[in-house]
């Protein structure tokens, strides 16, 4: 640690990997702390993890590709419904259900990307809204498959590893979710530091420069939509397994918008912000909504305004700045 601060001009680069391991350790610790400190709120915490996966998936699109979306829940909902339907039809193995949800999310991501990438800027944003509304309506109308406005219920996933039941306390579900989150997060850190991840960052900042390197933007961005869909679908499948219900809210505009708010709250473009934002938003919602169910959004709104005004890079961005000030690193390489 100490020698890293002594200028790292031409040294080797153990930095990013070490930081990612540290980050994963912190997430695991935080997750276990939640398990031990709030044993009565595990259902809520599991839902938090599934939404965190949704917000992470949104960060891939918004933070790494510079594409604003207000329809991300389409991918989450696709995962939730597909896993739910599979479970009701006899596929009960939880890992398999997650894979099914991820695949459904990825497929939906492919379609969504193919449509959204035809446009830029505001029309693109409008397309994202239209797509999630369309899917919402489809889920509502196809009640023979999705349960319509009642949603799906009665899924009974098989015990985890054949041993740990998904019981009323939600311990298995929570630890399952935490494990999923850690694996997804680790994979995504690798993805964003791959050549592909760097390319996406480049496309976000200056598509013309990337084009001048002879690189087509469309397939790269579409690939990110597929990855994002898989992550969101994983979150949806987790929600389906843990809560054993899937409702229309999982494929709603409102959830999409909330996910964007959480992401901006935490800070875009480095994945950690997605987690920070989700935890703060949902904890706030949980606590304030219990105290005053009618005005909790007012408080969230006030907090958001304060953050946009005083910490435009999001909460984690400000923490980053603070850490930078404290350690005074010389030349920091890519995140």
């Amino acid at each position: 640690m100490a020698e890293a601060t002594i200028r790292s001009a031409a040294a080797s680069r153990p930095g990013p990997l070490l930081r990612d391991l540290l980050g994963l350790g912190l997430i695991a610790l935080g997750g276990l702390a939640g398990y031990l400190l709030f044993p009565d709120n595990l259902a809520f915490l599991t839902r938090l993890i599934s939404v965190a996966l949704l917000v992470l998936s949104l960060d891939l699109i918004v933070g790494y590709c510079g594409i604003a979306s207000l329809g991300q829940a389409a991918l989450y909902g696709a995962g939730a419904y597909t896993a739910g339907i599979a479970c009701l039809n006899g596929v009960t193995e939880p890992f398999l259900l997650v894979l099914i949800g991820a695949a459904a999310g990825a497929m939906t991501g492919l379609l969504m990307g193919a449509v959204m990438l035809r446009a830029h800027g505001l029309p693109q944003l409008v397309l994202s809204i239209a797509l999630v509304q369309l899917l919402h309506e489809a889920a509502n109308k196809a009640s023979w498959l999705t349960g319509g406005s009642d949603g799906l219920s009665g899924m009974v996933p098989a015990p985890l590893f054949g041993v740990f039941e998904f019981d009323l306390w939600g311990r298995s579900a929570y630890l399952f979710g935490l494990g999923l989150l850690l694996v997804v997060f680790a994979v995504l850190r690798l993805v964003v530091r791959s050549p592909f991840g760097m390319l996406c960052r480049g496309l976000k900042e200056d598509p013309l420069r990337i084009s001048a390197l002879g690189i087509y933007a469309f397939p790269v961005l579409l690939k990110m939509f597929v990855i994002s869909g898989a992550v969101a679908g994983t979150g949806g499948a987790l929600a389906a397994i843990a809560t054993q219900v899937v409702g229309l809210d999982s494929v709603s505009f409102e959830l999409s918008a909330n996910a964007l708010v959480m992401l901006v709250l935490g800070g875009i473009g480095h994945l950690y912000g997605a987690l920070v934002g989700t935890v703060i938003f949902m904890a706030l919602e949980h606590v304030v909504a219990a105290a005053n169910p009618f005005h909790w959004m007012t408080l969230v709104g006030a907090v958001l305004i304060a953050i946009v005004l005083f910490a435009p890079r999001g909460l984690s961005g400000s923490l980053d700045q603070l850490a930078g000030l404290l350690t005074r690193q010389g030349g920091r390489a890519g995140r």
Partner: peptide, 10 residues
């Protein structure tokens, strides 16, 4: 190799 996912940039 510019769009490889299963590789480290560096």
């Amino acid at each position: 190799k510019a769009a490889r996912i299963l590789a480290r940039f560096h």
